[in-house]
Each structure stands twice: as structure tokens, then as C-alpha cells.
């Protein structure tokens, strides 16, 4: 495949793609405001949480895929989009968390704390969120420079965040594991690709 040079049009296209689920959500919310239950159903709290949850998971895996796709298809330009995709994933998770705070515990920090302690899937979700928060805050050029080698080390936390998000999902799901199977397969393939690179790199070094 021909190498594509970094260009803003492509980056913009990626951004549009990554935000299209949000645009759709804005449309659903508009329907909902015009006529309750018409956009998000009779239980919009759950509808919204599930919609944002699924897209958080997908965007997280998309962001985690950027490096592998870049290597497999030899498209170095993608490196410039990795941060953007990571921030998109973070944005979905923030909205998901916000929906939870506004519509599930309804601004009760006491209930949130109780959930965090009592419900393992919430514990995993919040741990995952904190990992992403650290990555998002330090995603700027300034932080990258300041942290030096430690920046790479810190951003390895993604290897914890994705399994935490998967655990969150596995623990809360009662039945119907089709999407989870797909996410696990997707994650396994990406890990496989990374393992393969490391092995080749080691071989080349000896």
C-alpha cells in the first residue's frame, strides 16, 4: 500500500468519523427533548449509559489499534492521529461517567462511593477512568517533554485500562456475550501483534 503522507484532511476525516456517534447522540437527545421517550426510550438513563459505554469501549480499542494499524499497513502518518483518537476515547468515557453521575447516582457522592466500594464493576470502571485521566492530562507536548522517559512508562497504563474496561463490562453483563467476545478477540489480536514485534525486535538485537 502506498504510504500516505500526514495531512490535515485525513486527520479531519478521522475526527469526523470518531465523533459521528456523538452527532447521532445529539440527534437522539434532540428527539428526546422534543418528545420524551422518542429518542432514548422509556428509560433514557440506561439507554444513554449503555450507548456511551459501548462507544467508550470501541473508541478505546480503536485508539489502542492505531499503532498496530500503522505498523501493519506501513502508514506512519497515523502516528500523528494516535493522541487524537486517545482523547476521543477519553471523551466518551467522561460522558459515560457524567451520565452515571447525573442519572444513576444523581449527584450523590455518597452513593458513588458506595458503588465504588460495593460493586466491583464500578471499581474497575473508575480505575480505568483514572488511568485514562492520567494519560489525557499528560498528553500535551509540554507534559511529554517534562516527563521524558517516564512519559512512555506512564502511558503503558493503557495495558491496564483496556483489561479494566473489559472486566467492567464482563462483570456487569448478565447474558448475551457476543459483543464482549468481539472486543476480547480484537484486544487479543492487538496484543498478539505487539508480542510479535517485541519478539522480532529481540531477535534482531541478538
Amino acid at each position: 500500500m502506498a504510504k500516505i503522507r500526514p495531512n490535515n484532511t485525513l486527520k479531519l476525516a478521522l475526527a469526523v468519523l470518531a465523533s459521528s456517534p456523538l452527532a447521532w447522540l445529539v440527534y437522539l437527545i434532540a428527539l428526546e427533548i422534543a418528545e420524551p421517550t422518542s429518542g432514548l426510550g422509556p428509560d433514557p438513563a440506561e439507554g444513554l449509559l449503555h450507548y456511551l459505554g459501548e462507544w467508550s469501549m470501541i473508541m478505546l480499542l480503536v485508539a489502542f489499534s492505531v499503532t498496530s494499524v500503522r505498523r501493519i499497513f506501513k502508514q506512519p502518518f497515523l502516528a500523528t492521529s494516535r493522541r487524537m483518537m486517545g482523547l476521543f476515547a477519553f471523551a466518551y468515557v467522561v460522558l459515560h461517567l457524567l451520565a452515571y453521575i447525573l442519572l444513576y447516582v444523581e449527584l450523590s457522592w455518597q452513593l458513588l462511593l458506595k458503588d465504588f466500594v460495593e460493586r466491583t464493576y464500578i471499581t474497575a470502571g473508575i480505575a480505568g477512568f483514572l488511568g485514562l485521566l492520567a494519560m489525557a492530562i499528560t498528553s500535551t507536548k509540554g507534559w511529554r517533554r517534562r516527563l521524558g522517559q517516564n512519559w512512555l512508562r506512564l502511558h503503558k497504563v493503557i495495558y491496564l485500562v483496556v483489561p479494566l474496561a473489559l472486566l467492567h463490562l464482563i462483570w456487569l453483563r448478565k447474558d448475551g456475550f457476543g459483543d464482549i467476545a468481539l472486543y476480547l478477540l480484537w484486544f487479543a489480536i492487538l496484543l498478539g501483534e505487539r508480542g510479535y514485534r517485541v519478539k522480532r525486535f529481540r531477535k534482531a538485537a541478538t
Binding site: 428526546e32 420524551p36 421517550t37 432514548l40 433514557p44 438513563a45 444513554l48
Partner: peptide, 12 residues
């Protein structure tokens, strides 16, 4: 949440 619940009033 007593259904129908809405975005602005979860009817909890």
C-alpha cells in the same frame, strides 16, 4: 426509576 423516566426527570 419509574417508567417513563426522562433525561430531565428520572422519576426516581
Amino acid at each position: 426509576r419509574r417508567l417513563p423516566s426522562t433525561l430531565f426527570n428520572t422519576n426516581r
